[in-house]
């Protein structure tokens, strides 16, 4: 029981990270039907920006988080404009291959810039442990969860209550009809990349303070896992990405907690394969595609 509770808590922390990254995958897919494989690397850049702000500039956690989110939002828009906009009407495989190219560019560009060496995040937050019934919760885990939930609520507010959010939903439903409303489709797509990238940056900074170590290839695995989480929830569906992220994090923590940590990564991909076979539209997906 204790192991279960402890792993549940660890899983929620890990799942928060997956969920934040998965949101960007799912939002971008929802609006341009592109699996943005460079998304995990935006998360990596976000972690480095957090490292730069805390370790080099000596900033505290919150300003570092905000700066990283803003810079990555801009990075996301630049990637979209330079790499994906010219391919908007090209076959989908072209955009997918370009995404892989952007991913490699970010990974090895970062290596060139900061060297491949692993960096250790400074102790921006001194660890405090709380013990309940033999289960340990750290203040970092609490912060990860609080920040994640706050960002998710903010995202829900943006998507459902603001005009830009409504425009995003309209564009993802029917681009031409959206244009007839007077919506600027290009700007709306840019905004979607900006928001998704900012969320990935937040995940990067949170991982930095949680696991301490970062490196230029750190985005690959979590990027793939978050993709699995997005598919698990139903790609293109925002609550699906949130749920998928948490579920995957919890499953992985359980697998490691019961002594099978070697199976942690395979489990994620086995889950992907099972979903693709049993319910390809994901947990939240409708089985029939809406007619447009």
């Amino acid at each position: 029981m204790e192991v279960f509770l402890q792993q549940l808590i660890n899983g929620i922390s890990l799942g928060s990270i997956y969920a934040l990254i998965a949101l960007g995958y799912t939002m971008v897919y929802g609006i341009v039907q592109l699996i943005n494989f460079a998304h995990g690397d935006v998360y990596m850049v976000g972690a480095y920006l957090g490292f730069f702000a805390t370790a080099i500039l000596g900033w505290s956690f919150l300003p570092a988080l905000l700066m990283s989110m803003v810079v990555c939002a801009i990075l996301g828009m630049v990637i979209e404009k330079l790499a994906y906009t010219p391919l908007r009407n090209a076959p989908r495989i072209a955009a997918l291959i370009t995404a892989i190219g952007v991913s490699l560019f970010l990974e090895y560009g970062m290596m060139l810039l900061v060297s491949p060496q692993v960096r250790t995040f400074p102790q921006v937050l001194t660890e405090v442990q709380y013990k309940f019934f033999g289960v340990v919760i750290t203040n970092r885990q609490v912060i990860i969860l609080v920040v994640t939930v706050a960002l998710m609520l903010l995202l829900q507010y943006i998507v459902h209550k603001t005009m830009i959010g409504k425009a995003m939903r309209a564009v993802s439903h029917d681009k031409q009809a959206a244009q007839l409303m007077g919506i600027n489709v290009n700007n709306t797509i840019s905004a979607t990349f900006a928001i998704g990238s900012a969320l990935a940056a937040a995940a990067g900074v949170l991982v930095g303070i949680y696991y301490n170590a970062i490196n230029p290839l750190m985005g690959i695995m979590p990027g793939l896992k978050a993709f699995v989480a997005a598919v698990l929830g139903g790609i293109g569906i925002i609550p699906g990405a949130m749920t998928g992220g948490f579920l995957l994090g919890i499953v992985e923590a359980m697998v490691s907690g019961y002594g099978k940590s070697l199976y942690r990564d395979p489990v994620a991909f086995v889950i992907l394969i099972i979903i693709l076979i049993v319910k390809p539209t994901g947990l939240f997906g409708k089985n029939v595609r809406e007619k447009v």
């Binding site: 005009m163 409504k166 425009a167 939903r169 309209a170 439903h173 029917d174 031409q176 009809a177 959206a178 007839l180 409303m181 007077g182 919506i183 809406e290 007619k291 447009v292």
Partner: peptide, 26 residues
């Protein structure tokens, strides 16, 4: 100048009032 497109092209997954709000996007 605006158009009511062939086949209506309403935003089926949004409530009616949001469809109207989007019409007034500008």
């Amino acid at each position: 100048l605006t158009q009511v497109p062939e086949g209506r092209r309403i935003f089926a997954n949004m409530p009616i009032y949001e469809n109207l709000e989007l019409g007034a996007f500008l």
